[in-house]
Design a protein around this nucleic acid. Structure first.
Length: 713
DNA sequence: ATGGGCATACGGCGATGCTG
DNA sequence: CAGCATCGCCGTATGCCCAT
């Protein structure tokens, strides 16, 4: 209940949002019902206690129809939404407990949230999101045929004229509603607005529209062309998503129809109290745009009416195909461009959606025109303002029409906010190139660096970029020293430190010097080392020697490099207590590769024995990840490469699968204490290897040879 | 009534620009 | 060139709303 109240206080001012609140509560209700049936949880409060976390996960999975076999949900979004709600609730519970000085309860709620944050993704959202993704793969987007859209347009035009004259003669509610529906559909289609928004357009919005442009300052910024367009179309503004103002353009034909509709409302039995422009006679509601659109899509005889009703497609093609007589391919091209520019715009300009759409299309059309736009600008202005509605646009007129859309769009765009790019075509593209602001560079003072290091050293050492909250915390604690910086500066500083660090600790196993350097810089950082996975490797390299003069497979990447690395790091490993040393063994017909792997196996085995004798808390084992499809095979010849890429999916394991065995060996508690170490692991369990790999004598001699070759001890 | 879409904010990270 | 600062693109989380 409290949750509902909370929502109500936030959103309750708007009756339209009550449905949203109800919906949230219903979701929780379902969860609760399910929990009571399948788990010991009885109240919603129980759901935000950390002890019950796993029960909650169970219940959510159940209510969302989780299928453990396929790892998918029947309704993934429900699971996600419940998660969000639970998080909110835990916060409410915490604040309530705090107000009541019930600190243990508050702590419980906090703990729950922490558990939630770390585990929810893994247990619930990951699978949900994947389910959602997958369902999208399987449902290819339906694109409407250009022709269908055009059919619909002309059908609507005809209908409108017919019903219009009919209504003029016979003022019956039926005819009125027909005209209302037709016009509604036209408006939606032409403006590619959300059907819901247009349907709910209030009568007052239409009546109060001001034909003379009310915004003088905007007017000045417009070109002649754009001014004319403003006069040609009438624009009214309605409340769209998030209460934003959304413009709706009306063509003269629509205006006529609407005028008639408004004029005959009373005669046709529309109640005065009905506030909607597209009202239902003898009711207080309005027609629903989606219904009308669907109906006319069917009625107009389009080949593919379903795709016409789809929001997405209507959005892009509605206006375009009416104004431009585009062929199918051209339209596809447009869509491509649009798809790309959407993101660019959205991220850079952060425009409200309505504006964005207009700006997007204008930019896209400009790109299409490649600067030819200027030639046509103004020249054919009169043509455009006279009959863009005819629908029969000749090919030579196409550019002109384009100009027109551009004009009207930028008109809208420039009205919406200061962030909108200027209407002119050319500057817009160039601006992006040189868009970077000049900045002042402030050297990081010693004092500042110390202050940051004091708190953020762990981030630097572990190569993790701190989050906003981390940076804020640091700022708070070192407010005095860091008053010149903001959180972003700290983040960037640390990020740069990390990149610098990374470039220093690059490791090339083929170069023994690089290995030594790496170990030195690693030791300087004074970090613990618990697990060492020697996993790099190349195979089927062309004949060659490393810079130290060894054969590539054996001397470099696959064996000696690892040997040296492990040798040098052994101290750190021993200090850090526990260690798994792993060498991978992959099957391969190629001799050199095979031998180097065998060498690793021997080394691994011998190392383990040494470690056991010395009584160190370390173990070492060899792992075969199987034939993993990675860059390991990149040295295969090209034809083989091709074959590999297609066959790979059948034969090889995915990298993730291959990693499983390695991870198992690295993390499994079964390997602690070294009793089980030294073995050879494959497919998640211990396997025996071929006899030569366990010949102690051979192992020892390899060991000694390696030590000699590297000049150790 | 209910599942899903969509916009947005935020965070991560490689690439890249700018300045001393 | 090193070191600071940004950009550009992507993915995830979240809140609101729509379409059926």
């Amino acid at each position: 209940m409290e949750y509902g109240e909370h929502l109500y206080h936030r959103l309750g001012y708007d009756v339209g949002k009550h449905e949203y609140i109800r919906q949230k509560l219903r979701e929780l209700g379902r969860l609760l019902v399910c929990s009571r049936k399948t788990t010991p949880l009885k109240t919603i409060q129980d759901h935000v206690k950390p002890i019950n976390f796993l029960h909650v996960v169970q219940a959510v999975k159940h209510v969302a129809g989780f299928d453990s076999e396929t790892n998918t949900y029947k309704c993934p979004s429900l699971a996600l939404k419940i998660g969000h709600s639970l998080k909110k609730i835990s916060m409410l519970v915490e604040s309530r407990a705090n107000v009541q000085s019930n600190y243990s309860a508050a702590k419980d709620a906090r703990t729950f949230r922490r558990v939630y944050e770390t585990r929810w993704n893994e247990l619930i959202s990951a699978a949900s999101l994947r389910t959602l993704q997958e369902s999208k793969w399987n449902a290819p987007q339906l694109l409407p045929f250009t022709k269908d859209v055009q059919t619909l347009h002309s059908y609507l035009d005809v209908q409108q004229q017919e019903v219009h004259s009919k209504l003029s003669a016979d003022k019956s509610p039926q005819t009125w509603s027909q005209l209302a529906k037709v016009t509604l559909t036209q408006v939606i289609l032409f403006n590619r607005r959300r059907a819901g928004e247009v349907s709910k357009m209030p009568l007052s919005a239409y009546l109060s529209q001001n034909p003379s442009d009310p915004q003088e300052d905007v007017n000045i910024a417009l070109s002649e062309l754009e001014k004319k367009l403003c006069k040609y179309f009438r624009r009214i503004e309605i409340r769209g998503k998030r209460g934003r103002k959304v413009p709706v353009l009306l063509t003269p034909a629509m205006q006529q129809a609407l005028d008639l509709l408004v004029g005959t409302r009373q005669e046709c039995g529309v109640p005065k109290e009905n506030i909607y422009l597209f009202a239902r006679p003898s009711a207080f509601t309005c027609y629903r745009g989606s219904d009308c659109l669907r109906y006319f899509a069917k009625a107009c005889g389009a080949k593919n009416p379903e795709s016409l009703t789809s929001t997405k497609l209507r959005k892009q093609t509605g206006t375009l195909s009416q104004v431009l007589n585009l062929t199918n391919t051209e339209l596809d091209l447009l869509a491509d461009f649009l798809g790309h520019d959407i993101r660019v715009h959205r991220q850079f300009y952060r425009l409200p959606e309505g504006t964005l759409q207009l700006a997007k299309i204008s930019k896209l059309l400009m790109a299409l025109e490649q600067g030819r736009l200027a030639e046509f600008q103004g020249k054919t202005l009169d043509d455009i303002s006279i009959d863009p509605e005819e629908g029969q646009v000749t090919s030579t007129q196409m550019e002109n029409q384009t100009t027109m859309r551009d004009g009207s769009n930028t008109d809208e765009a420039s009205q919406q906010g200061p962030m909108t790019p200027p209407p002119a075509a050319q500057p817009q593209t160039q601006r992006r190139q040189k868009g970077r602001q000049p900045f002042k560079k402030k050297l990081w003072e010693k004092m500042e660096i110390q202050a940051v290091e004091k708190h953020m050293m762990t981030f630097i050492n572990t190569c993790r970029v701190p989050r906003k909250s981390d940076c804020d915390k640091c700022l708070e604690m070192e407010g005095e020293a860091l008053k010149q910086r903001n959180w972003l500066a700290i983040k960037f500083y640390i990020k740069n430190r990390i990149t610098a660090l990374k470039s220093k600790i690059k490791l090339d196993l083929a170069s023994l010097q690089s290995v030594r350097q790496f170990v030195q810089s690693f030791k300087e950082r004074d970090l613990p080392l618990n697990i060492l996975v020697n996993n790099a490797g190349v195979m089927l390299l062309p004949e060659g020697r490393t810079e130290d003069g060894f054969e590539q497979h054996f001397g470099g990447v696959n064996y000696l490099g690892h040997f040296l690395l492990t040798w040098l790091l052994l101290d750190t490993l021993k200090d850090s207590g526990k260690c798994g040393y792993f060498s991978r063994v992959s099957y391969s017909a190629h001799a050199a590769y095979c031998h180097s792997k065998l060498a690793q196996l021997w080394f691994s085995s011998h190392l383990h024995q040494e470690l056991q004798c010395g009584g160190f808390p370390l173990s070492s084992c060899a792992v075969d990840p199987g034939m993993v499809d990675t860059a390991l095979y990149r040295h295969l010849w090209t034809p083989l490469c091709l074959a590999q890429s297609t066959i790979a999916r059948l034969l090889f394991r995915t990298p993730a699968e291959g990693a499983t065995t390695v991870l198992f060996a690295a993390l499994s508690p079964a390997l602690e204490g070294g009793k089980c170490g030294g073995g050879y692991w494959a497919n998640g369990h211990r396997e025996m290897t071929t006899p030569p790999s366990f010949d102690p004598q051979l192992q020892l001699s390899l060991w000694e040879t390696s030590v000699q070759l590297l000049g150790l001890q």
